[in-house]
């Protein structure tokens, strides 16, 4: 008892006998969630930008004022063209991305599961993945026409390859121990694929979705270069051709919002499908 008390005493009086606190060396290197920083930064940049434009510091040829871009957006909304452009783009995105992802998952699973498919397809996928799909546009026009075909095809091809790679990498990363467990309990091949390999590859496939969705949006502008009357990409291209920078910025903002919404949706999907992880 007395020993303890003494210890406490000395701890409370650090000056005695030259004692001092151990210097603190921890902390840092940890991200704290800081709620509203992003919107504040965003609004501050917008305000600075507007101020620069109003004062003439930023030439209107270099960048239109945010208010001008907002006015262009408002015009789009008022004339109802917004929905026409959005509708056309969303249709192409949805169709191209869905088909590209489904095909990509199918081929990715084949590459992940069958040696023959891996030997035959993987070099092909690796060779075609880095080809800019924009370079293939003239071919797509001949193959798929200047209607919706070539636009959907551009997005499909753009999303197909990253999905293949994400899927087969996901399959490769499935815990071999789980597969062995399945075999040891006499599960059928299809059961192992369906119940062990596909769910096990799902995190990789979903993060592949994030990438392929972004690529799809990037390719939207390229896809709508050809014969598109409506679509956000076509609107941006038209604004560029007319040097209507306010419309250009408005269109780019629409693409950003689209990207954010899609990222949010994929986040929701991840939460649903991967709730077992965290």
């Amino acid at each position: 008892m007395s020993h303890e008390a003494a210890a406490r005493d000395t701890a409370n009086t650090p000056d005695d006998a030259g004692q001092r606190p151990v210097p603190f060396r921890g902390g840092g290197f940890v991200h704290r969630p800081l709620g509203p920083v992003a919107p504040v930064v965003f609004l501050a940049i917008l305000a600075l930008w507007e101020l620069g434009s109003r004062s003439g510091f930023i030439s209107p040829i270099a960048l239109p004022a945010p208010s001008a871009a907002f006015a262009a957006l408002a015009d789009l909304f008022k004339t109802g063209m917004l929905w026409k452009h959005l509708g056309a783009s969303l249709y192409r995105l949805a169709l191209g991305w869905t088909l590209g992802s489904l095909l990509g998952i199918a081929v990715g699973l084949a590459v992940g599961l069958f040696s023959l498919a891996r030997a035959g397809l993987l070099p092909l996928v690796s060779a075609l993945f880095p080809v800019p799909k924009i370079a293939l546009l003239p071919l797509f026009i001949i193959w798929f026409g200047i209607g919706e075909g070539s636009k959907v095809a551009t997005i499909l091809f753009g999303t197909f390859f990253p999905t293949v790679i994400a899927t087969y990498a996901g399959v490769d990363n499935v815990d071999r121990g789980l597969i062995r467990m399945g075999q040891s309990f006499g599960l059928g091949w299809l059961s192992i694929v369906r119940k062990i390999i596909v769910p096990g590859a799902m995190p990789a496939i979903l993060s592949g979705f994030r990438i392929s969705a972004s690529i799809a949006i990037v390719l939207l502008v390229a896809a709508e270069m050809i014969g598109a009357e409506f679509g956000i990409g076509a609107y941006i291209l038209m604004a560029g051709a007319l040097f209507a920078l306010d419309q250009l910025i408005a269109g780019v903002a629409l693409l950003s919002v689209l990207g954010l919404v899609i990222a949010w949706l994929i986040g929701k999907l991840e939460k649903r499908l991967l709730s077992w992880r965290m």
């Binding site: 815990d175 121990g177 789980l178 062995r180 467990m181 040891s184 309990f185 006499g186 119940k195 062990i196 769910p199 096990g200 799902m202 991967l274 077992w276 992880r277």
Partner: peptide
Amino acid sequence: SLNPLTYIFQDFALLPWR
């Protein structure tokens, strides 16, 4: 008996999503 020879693994081998 559905599976006469049945393993129990060191790392449990449970499907984390089930």
